[in-house]
Nucleic acid binder design. Structure first.
Lengths: 162, 162
DNA sequence: GAAGATTGATTGTTCAATCTTA
DNA sequence: TAAGATTGAACAATCAATCTTC
């Protein structure tokens, strides 16, 4: 049954490269799943919440809604509701933009900053354990080079989960 | 404000490895997003549906529900509803398992097999363009080695999006 | 009692439509 | 007319509870 598909696979993609691709997917999935689990268990924080806090912090503590939406790779409506939840939890606040009255500025609160600090330890420990400690410095250099080739350098950010 | 965080980052994770980690996330995100877009535009098929078809095909055309759930990294209830949708679309059917009357077997239909064949071309072309063509054979060998170290080889499958 | 699967309630994401300001 | 943001309706994923069979 699968002969046709198998043939078309190897015509287009050498087995070696297909194995590399699948390994890439497996590694991504297993590492992020583990990071998600650890952060949720030890800090009660979803990785997606942590990512919002990181983005805001790296932007200097505040950000416009549409900019946040594009860094998170979320639609605007999803971002609105997402931000609502974090605001209800006291991690950030929304305010009208000073220069453009259509706009909204999202700002990290002290509590949000504190939550970020406490979460960062857990998260970075996880990235170290599940990624950094496993690869050598030479591997890391190579990955930087490879990943830069694979990710479109011009266009915007991306879901970081830094 | 961020001094404490920045310090704790570099204590745990050398800057080089952190850059490798972020590159890894960016590359994964941008490639899978593009593959999703292409498959949806050219075949009207979500990547997650394609993944179900691939899993079933690689398992010889049929699979038990709980096994499918674990290959897809979905909960059982999510898998039930997911399979319902694909069944409504005519891509697969459900039947009682012959040996265990608690169980359900999911089986690819001819239409499902046909959809898989037509989707595979588009998808594999994408993996080739956005991944295979960009890396050398040496890079691929290295990635296989690295990704195998990063993904726990013993435990189960993973979301493939093959 | 435990495993396999489904259903109900809750939560989260999206698209399309809407409202306000530029 | 378009950009920024929010709201309503539809869809998808999860947990807990349930039902059947082992």
């Amino acid at each position: 049954l699968t002969a046709g598909i198998v043939r078309s696979v190897s015509d287009q993609l050498p087995a070696l490269k297909l194995r590399a691709w699948r390994g890439f997917l497996e590694a991504h999935s297993s590492i992020t799943r583990e990071l998600e689990r650890e952060l949720r268990e030890e800090r009660g924080l979803p990785l997606s919440w942590y990512d919002v806090l990181v983005q805001l912090n790296e932007a200097g503590g505040e950000m416009r809604m549409h900019r946040l939406a594009s860094s998170l790779l979320l639609s605007r409506s999803a971002t609105t509701r997402f931000v609502e939840r974090l605001e209800r939890a006291g991690l950030l606040v929304r305010d009208g933009a000073p220069d453009d009255r259509r706009g909204t500025v999202v700002r990290l609160t002290d509590q949000g900053m504190d939550t970020l600090r406490r979460a960062a330890g857990v998260h970075l420990r996880g990235v170290k354990r599940h990624f950094g400690d496993i690869i050598s410095n030479e591997d890391a250099e190579l990955l930087v080079r490879l990943m830069t080739k694979l990710a479109p350098p011009p266009s915007g950010e991306g879901a970081s989960y830094s």
